[in-house]
Design a protein around this nucleic acid. Structure first.
Length: 420
RNA sequence: GGACGGGUGGCCGAGUCCGGUUGAUGGCGCCAGUCUUGAAAACUGGUACAGGUGCAAGCCUGUCCUGGGUUCAAAUCCCAGCCCGUCCGCCA
């Protein structure tokens, strides 16, 4: 969230940022409640101070004549405070609904058409035959099954079978190895259910409750991304500055309701209620966060390059970047069969927006007061669409799929999917 | 799930039965200083977080797991919840 003090001092900036993001921001209501809250709080605290003073005198003198006055003071202070608390709760709830501002380098725009290609790697593969889609190939090879998944669970679920399941496992292993051994991330295996406070910490609540699955009769949610448990790992902590940046990589399934995506990407292994993802998370200082964000994006890109997949890096425009993000890149991998780019990674930096919600701080120096950390995360990468790009890029005219060089050590000797 | 025990500052650990100003004795750690060529040891001092208010120094309020309650006053008493431990039950 944004600091109350920041909104007090920069109401216009906050209003304009929200507008460009296509979000509402209850700035006026925040400012109004802020005034009301402070009025009652001040009154309550002044009274409490007097009461404390007099109470000390009573402890000394045991003068019974003070009793009645003390009782009244206590009553008034308590009721003032309860009004102040009620207003503050309302104010806090509102604060959680004010969107983040964005970095000056973010392109201004309304829709994904206004996103900007920052760079591109590789070229579209030239196939000597008509490219087939991953679901066409996957079903023909017997490595993907959507029909049975629909029967067993419902739409937007999938079974992977045989070499398809093996490919998924190989990719997870490969990505984790690269990020831990070569990019210096610490591997994390997180809980896959989190409580509401954690969801608030990463800004999945309160605004996006309908995007996540809630466990009935409990305060637990299925994680929409490993970002939630991993970022919240340091909730309510004060970190030592020399430990920063903290770099984590976590493999976890992610669950999303996909509310509002009805009819979109219904076909294939693209938009699922459950999907695997290797997630990168960094916690760092305000001075280094933009730089660490760029590096994290490069770390995700490195996976695509090693897999030999053609991709673009898109800078998200204000209207397409989201409520909490300060700056965001999407990595789009080319899928020849679908004849379009697929979003295989989304890398974001949040400034202290998440850290304020999750209360993650660091101490800049000895004896210095704590500051809010900056959080960064990105997929490195999301599995299904990476698999799609691999299948469609490495398909052969006979419908079999060559295993990319980088994955061969992870495929247990399988170099050609569909050969047996 | 049942029974019992427990949650106190960066850490350890008093205080809780018998409420009184206690943000909380003590030790460790950390920081500064003295001493020393330097370091260690020893000694001295310092060492939480949040909010309100103020130009500032400062002042005030709150915080002993969380939320309620009793009281002029709660770390301390009462209620509920969460978490941890031990035993029993169940279980991959």
């Amino acid at each position: 969230m944004l600091a109350l003090d920041f909104i007090r001092k920069n109401p216009e900036l906050v209003r304009r940022a929200a507008e460009l993001k296509g979000e509402g921001a209850p700035v006026d209501e925040v400012l109004r409640l802020d005034g009301v809250w402070r009025g009652h709080l001040h009154k309550a605290e002044t009274l409490k101070a007097e009461q404390n003073e007099l109470s000390k005198e009573f402890a000394r003198t045991r003068d019974e004549s003070l009793k009645e006055r003390l009782r009244q003071m206590a009553d008034t202070a308590k009721s003032e405070l309860s009004v102040a608390d009620a207003v503050k709760r309302e104010l806090d709830d509102l604060l959680l609904r004010v969107p983040n501002v964005f970095h000056e380098s973010v392109p201004v725009g309304e829709t994904e058409a206004d996103n900007v290609v920052v760079r591109e790697w590789g070229t579209r593969p030239e196939l000597a035959f008509a490219a087939r889609t991953h679901y066409d190939l996957g079903e023909a090879l017997g490595i993907m099954d959507f029909e049975r998944a629909a029967r067993v669970t419902g739409s937007r679920f999938a079974f992977l079978l045989g070499e398809g399941a093996r490919l998924e496992r190989a990719l997870v292993q490969f990505m984790l190895d690269v990020h831990t051994r070569e990019h210096g991330y610490t591997e994390v295996w997180p809980p896959m259910l989190v409580n509401s406070a954690s969801m608030v910490g990463t800004a999945n609540l309160p605004k996006f409750a309908d995007a996540a699955f809630k466990v009935e009769d409990s305060d637990l949610w299925l994680i929409p991304t490993a970002e939630v448990p991993v970022t919240n790992f340091h909730r309510d902590e004060i970190l030592e500055v020399d430990r920063l940046p903290l770099k984590y990589v976590a493999y976890a399934p992610s669950w999303r309701t996909e509310a509002g995506a009805a009819g979109k990407d219904t076909r294939g292994f693209i938009r699922l209620h459950q999907f695997s993802k290797v997630e990168l998370v960094k916690v760092t200082t305000g001075e280094t966060s933009l730089d660490e964000f760029e590096k994290l994006t490069r770390d995700a890109e490195d996976i695509l390059q090693r897999l030999g997949l053609h991709y673009q890096v898109m800078a998200m425009c204000t209207g397409d970047m989201g409520f909490a993000q300060y700056k965001k890149y999407d990595l789009m991998a080319w899928a020849p069969g679908l004849d379009r780019f697929l979003e295989v990674s989304s890398c974001s930096t949040f400034n202290d927006f998440q850290a304020m919600r999750a209360n993650i701080r660091y101490r800049p120096g000895r004896g210095a007061p704590p500051k809010f950390a900056h959080t960064i995360n990105g997929s490195g990468l999301a599995l299904p669409r990476t698999i799609d790009a691999i299948i469609e890029t490495y398909q052969r005219s006979d419908g079999m799929i060559s295993v990319p060089e980088a994955l061969k050590p992870y495929m247990g000797g399988v170099e050609l999917i569909g050969a047996r």
